[in-house]
């Protein structure tokens, strides 16, 4: 391993992308409107694509002839560094939309800042991903507004989703040692600056959606350090099944 900290830093975002992409893939064929089924699958596909770019880079840093698939398929839950937000079950369409919105408002500003990373490889992955994420954030924000300001039922459902997810929104902007070391070394992103922009965006969209902003300030955390919810074990059982059942094969 040439750079343990950079490796950990990259995995944080790679795992966010993979796990959320995996969750969105569960929607495939079951969306509420054909056009939105396509949108959910499309975002899932973008996220898997982003995960691959990060894993490929992380595998090179790791050396030992590892590949993207070793990182995705052969680590157990404690090795994953994604935030708890992205492993939350899909719930109804409103819950999925709110989870997506709370993630997109992070990732969009994260990539925007990472484009100025001193690490050229990270900067180029960020540039590509930022374009995709701008579209994701537009889509999820539009749906938050549409559902929030739609019918009484849709308003109540999406408000309920917001209340439940509120305590999961901040883990992603709380610094770990990987985050602070990355920032100090010049290839990372300032989460404090990001949080300001992100919070302003969240507030603006929720207001337009006529939703009430929850008052709670408590934040669940642990995911970035490998301590997850019970959900992740099942996600990995599904995701890793073939690689675990038939080890060492080409697919």
């Amino acid at each position: 391993m040439t750079d343990q900290n950079k490796f950990d830093y990259i995995l944080q975002q790679a795992d966010n992308c993979l796990i959320l992409g995996q969750r969105l893939a569960e929607w495939c064929g079951h969306g509420p409107i054909l056009e939105q089924d396509i949108a959910l699958t499309n975002i899932s596909l973008d996220l898997i694509g982003q995960a691959r770019l990060f894993y490929q880079y992380a595998a090179e840093i790791q050396g030992e002839e590892k590949t993207e698939d070793d990182l995705a398929y052969l680590r157990d839950a404690w090795g994953f560094k994604n935030v708890l937000l992205v492993e939350q079950p899909n719930g109804d369409f409103g819950f999925t939309i709110m989870r997506q919105f709370l993630y997109d408002t992070f990732s969009c500003y994260f990539y925007e800042a990472l484009m100025s990373s001193s690490d050229e490889r990270l900067a180029s992955i960020a540039a590509k991903s930022h374009k995709e994420t701008l579209y994701h954030m537009k889509w999820s924000a539009d749906w938050v507004i549409r559902l929030g300001d739609g019918t009484v039922e849709s308003h109540n459902r999406v408000q309920q989703a917001l209340n439940e997810l509120w305590s999961y929104k901040d883990e992603i902007v709380i610094e770990t040692s990987a985050d602070s070391d990355a920032l100090a070394a010049g290839y990372g992103v300032s989460l404090a600056e990001l949080k300001e922009k992100r919070d302003a965006k969240i507030t603006a969209v929720l207001e337009e959606a006529t939703l009430s902003i929850p008052e709670g300030t408590y934040s669940h955390k642990g995911g970035k350090e490998g301590v997850h919810s019970e959900h992740l074990g099942y996600i990995l059982a599904d995701l890793q099944f073939l690689q675990r059942a038939y080890p060492g094969n080409e697919w």
């Binding site: 993979l18 995996q22 893939a25 569960e26 495939c28 064929g29 079951h30 054909l34 089924d37 396509i38 699958t41 499309n42 899932s44 596909l45 898997i48 694509g49 995960a51 691959r52 894993y55 993207e68 698939d69 995705a72 398929y73 599904d238 995701l239 099944f241 073939l242 690689q243 094969n249 697919w251």
Partner: peptide
């Protein structure tokens, strides 16, 4: 086919499976 997307055995296959099912929706 969606039945196997979450269990696709590699990231490359997963991306291809997603793209394929998305084409069908299209």
């Amino acid at each position: 086919e969606a039945n196997w997307i979450t269990r696709a055995p590699s990231l490359r296959r997963k991306a291809a499976a997603l793209a394929k099912v998305q084409d069908e929706a299209g």
